[in-house]
């Protein structure tokens, strides 16, 4: 059963009509409803509030990292573990192909259904997850494979074991190493980009976001609780934090917005997957026209330029 958010109700009704028309084999009615659907999709999705986009980013039918891996990779193998403590199922790593391109794909993985959600810890990695990702990108560097990193997490896990094993250090180490990793790297926020836990696989030659993904320094819930001291101010906080792909592109904090279907990846997984695949292949081939030294210099210059402040003339 597909799940619909309240503002998607019109779409739900029309999609049900289309299904009925299909059953009746009434092609004429189906064509009319399909036209109607396009119109309603355009109306519904071209003017979403930041909070509605947040809801889409967290939509339970939205494709997760493994869904995309299955759709865009072939002849692939999952690799496990950071060789020290345990394998973290909240981060998955693969070696394989996207079309002809050999590559490494890393993703933060939320689970679907209660059992899987628990197994994947709701997509909240422990330090060993970030260390596994680091191991995977080091392999990619060694064998000169481009890396695709799929970001989708509410945040790094705030727990006892996570602190004992150095959650901070694990995230910091990834920022440090990824800033200088000697291979081509592309990060894509596919759903929720929750703070440092997202950034830990978000330092790359290209940082892109799907149309309905979000990326923020703190969850809007956390922000409302801390700054407004009022958990009901989530919508206000969501807007103030400027977390949508459009906002962040406008602020020049990300490189690109990936052309996710207007109706959303949750209603058209295949086209969403194609959009990621095409972006990855196109950017890898563009980036690899430069030497690795040029790429690294650009990656660093980009990071160094981020920040807005005023510089007064010295007194």
């Amino acid at each position: 059963m597909a799940f619909y958010l309240d503002f998607e109700n019109k779409i739900k009704n029309i999609q049900e009509e289309i299904e009925l028309a299909e059953i009746r084999k009434d092609d004429h009615a189906k064509a009319i409803f399909e036209k109607e659907l396009d119109k309603v999709v355009e109306q519904t999705y071209s003017n979403l509030s930041a909070y509605q986009q947040l809801q889409l980013a967290r939509h339970q039918d939205r494709p997760y990292a493994i869904d995309y891996v299955k759709l865009i990779m072939h002849d692939y193998h999952e690799i496990h573990g950071e060789r020290t403590f345990r394998d973290d199922p909240a981060i998955v790593c693969y070696m394989g192909y996207i079309d002809e391109q050999k590559c490494v794909v890393i993703g933060e993985q939320k689970g679907r259904g209660t059992k899987n959600k628990l197994k994947r810890n709701f997509g909240m990695p422990h330090p060993e997850g970030y260390r596994k990702a680091l191991r995977a990108v080091k392999l990619a560097e060694k064998f000169n494979l481009p890396v695709l990193m799929l970001i989708d997490t509410p945040g790094a896990y705030p727990g006892l074991g996570a602190e004992e094993r150095g959650q901070s250090e694990a995230i910091a180490r990834n920022l440090y190493e990824l800033s200088d990793l000697g291979t081509t790297t592309i990060s894509v926020v596919i759903g929720e980009g929750g703070s440092g836990g997202a950034l830990a696989i978000g330092v790359a030659d290209r940082l892109a976001m799907m149309r309905y993904s979000v990326f923020s320094v703190i969850s809007p819930e956390g922000c409302a609780a801390i700054l407004w001291n009022d958990p009901t101010k989530v919508e206000t906080a969501t807007k103030a934090l400027k977390i949508t792909a459009e906002d962040l592109k406008e602020l020049d904090l990300i490189d690109d917005i990936i052309d996710e279907p207007l109706i959303g990846a949750h209603r058209d997984k295949n086209r969403a997957a194609d959009a990621i695949k095409n972006y990855f292949l196109r950017e890898v081939s563009a980036l690899e026209k430069l030497s690795i030294d040029e790429r690294l210099a650009k990656r660093y210059a980009r990071l160094e330029s981020i920040g807005r402040f005023q510089e007064d003339s010295k007194a």
Binding site: I171, A172, L175, Y176, E177, S179, D180, S195, G196, L199, G202, V203, F215, S216, V217, I218, C223, I226, L227, A240, L241, K242, I243, L248, L251, L253, Y300, L303, E304, I306, G307, R308
Partner: peptide, 25 residues
């Protein structure tokens, strides 16, 4: 991180870490 600067402040984590990587090298 300073929430009032949102993603600008989040990205300072990457910016400072990258600079320290240079110092390390």
């Amino acid at each position: 991180a300073r929430m009032q600067e949102s993603t600008f402040s989040l990205m300072q984590m990457a910016k400072t870490s990258a600079a320290l990587r240079r110092l390390d090298k």
